[in-house]
Design a protein around this nucleic acid. Sequence first.
DNA 1: TAGGCGATGGGTAACGTTCCCCACGGTGGG
DNA 2: CCCACCGTGGGGAACGTTACCCATCGCCTA
Lengths: 344, 344
Amino acid sequence: MVTRDRQRRVTITDVAKHAQVSTTAVSKVLQNAYGVSEAMRAKVRAAIDELGYRPHNAARAMRGRTFTIGVLLPHIRNPFFADILDGLTEEISGSGYQAIMVQSGGRGPAAERRASDALVDRQVDGILWVAPLCSKSQLEKMAGDTPLVVLGRHDRSALYDCVLDDDEIGAALVVEHLIALGHRRIAHITDDVGGRSSVLLQTVRATTYERVMTEHGLAEHIAVAATSYTEEGGYEGTRELLARDPRPTAIFAGADQAAFGALAAIHEAGLTVPGDISVAGYDNARVVGFAHIALTSVDQDGALMGKTAGRLLLERIGGRTSAVRFSVTPTLVPRRSTAPPKTP
Amino acid sequence: MVTRDRQRRVTITDVAKHAQVSTTAVSKVLQNAYGVSEAMRAKVRAAIDELGYRPHNAARAMRGRTFTIGVLLPHIRNPFFADILDGLTEEISGSGYQAIMVQSGGRGPAAERRASDALVDRQVDGILWVAPLCSKSQLEKMAGDTPLVVLGRHDRSALYDCVLDDDEIGAALVVEHLIALGHRRIAHITDDVGGRSSVLLQTVRATTYERVMTEHGLAEHIAVAATSYTEEGGYEGTRELLARDPRPTAIFAGADQAAFGALAAIHEAGLTVPGDISVAGYDNARVVGFAHIALTSVDQDGALMGKTAGRLLLERIGGRTSAVRFSVTPTLVPRRSTAPPKTP
DNA sequence: TAGGCGATGGGTAACGTTCCCCACGGTGGG
DNA sequence: CCCACCGTGGGGAACGTTACCCATCGCCTA
């Protein structure tokens, strides 16, 4: 490998020389530390501006802080994650921290592990982990190294904070909405890529679906397609469900993305929404209200969740060691994709 | 701020002690450097495994390399970016490099600047910058610090590589497709958030639209709504276009996301697609084929572009200094959202 | 007036890694 | 037999920043 002849960076030493003070003084100004006179502050600030100095992150990292927050996302295809990230960005902007994202999903637990290691190795000051699949003990191990906030997972730990929506309420809202409309043959599309652990939100949604169906005496109509929370998953799952006889009159997809795939499969089968089949999703990503077929969905305020996660992370970085659990209550947003079933 | 009592990391010194060799030797093994016997290699490898050693990234960064590639995306809402990232990830997986993402857009040029600075400050070994808005001189300045590949921008530089699709061909394909169907009043939705520089792909698409219209004697029907490549932008732009009299019979949205917004606005106005109005997008993000209304779009193979960008970046990091420009030829994917206009 | 104290500024040793050197031992050719 | 050379391994400085600790100075109090 050839060494690039990049121009030498401006360092804290250059600033110190230029301002005719010590590097320590410059560092103190940078940290807003105690024991710096106003005159010193001004002098150093001027030198920094004049030279266009920017702190060298790696050097800071060697001393313990990087002013970086790592975000682990399964992937970036789900628009709901963008809402979360917007909230996070809003919260940490102005705090001096910068968020970096890494994709954790798509290639199984080994990839997830690699991605989380990558953030730890890069010495980020805190990690927001969205929908982790790994074990609680692994999360706690990481929390020992780095302040950690977990989003979208139903467990508790004394070592990290949890931000989630109440998926039991959300899923129940959908199923009860469909039942209230008169549906009985209501099917569900779930994600089983990460297994069926009860801490995973997809498991909670699926279990709640089954519970509510049973409570309403509809246990015999329970029909679950276990694919994934993606367009492809929704498409395949729906094809599977449509092949059953009698076919469902409503489909509750565990995520909006899967619901999109469901719409495609239904259309391809020559059926209409909501005429022949009602479809509901979950997440209420901004796009679903804009879609041609406005999708009934469950809103869980991703921006608020992201914002809260950012706040909790900053608190933890600031020294809080007690654990916090923040849960938002989801609401149903009925739109045109759900309607009473045709009388048979 | 409280110092966390995180357990001390395993360092190269620990490995060296455990293997009873020097730190230099361990480093050499890590680098696959010349001058290391097979026995030494094995001994060090064993010690590394036994201790679970992972190199400390910040310390490496101080010496020049981080094994990190930075990706600057305007935002993560556009599913097309996910295709690019998949390609990049595929290419660099196994190379020892890790990609980290930063959002550059959403809050104007200052935010873009902050995001790019963040990556430079974090000493990434190379940067893939998707759809930058800043000036060429700023890009070249960055390229002096860090190997740079720019994706989706119509310029050339001796200092960085360019990956793009031929937007002239792509836009022409759409407009000619609509004209061939019999449309005359074809409108366009463009993005002018980043200004109207001719190096921006949105400008190229808009200019090409006007050129092809003119070439077909349809100059008087040119109608452009300048909003943004988002659902909201497509929605607002379409409302604006629908208010004209006579209203267009076809809308070419410069991006799929905007096309989704257009579909919503058209539906809201009580019109049908493609019955009353044809709609075409650009990017052919995977989701558009799945949507209920399958959208006519332009495919530019984001995965290939991402993969190529990754390759070029690795080459540049490896020492290549000559500039490369890689252009994919887009293809039209006609779907159900475009059809001949109603005879008036 | 001496001693102490608070406020400010600086010297310097780390942090973990790499890489430029140099040392050492063995081998082969003159 | 001596010297040059090659293959291997190690010593140690350097990267930029921070934080501990000490020095200095001016002022207040006993």
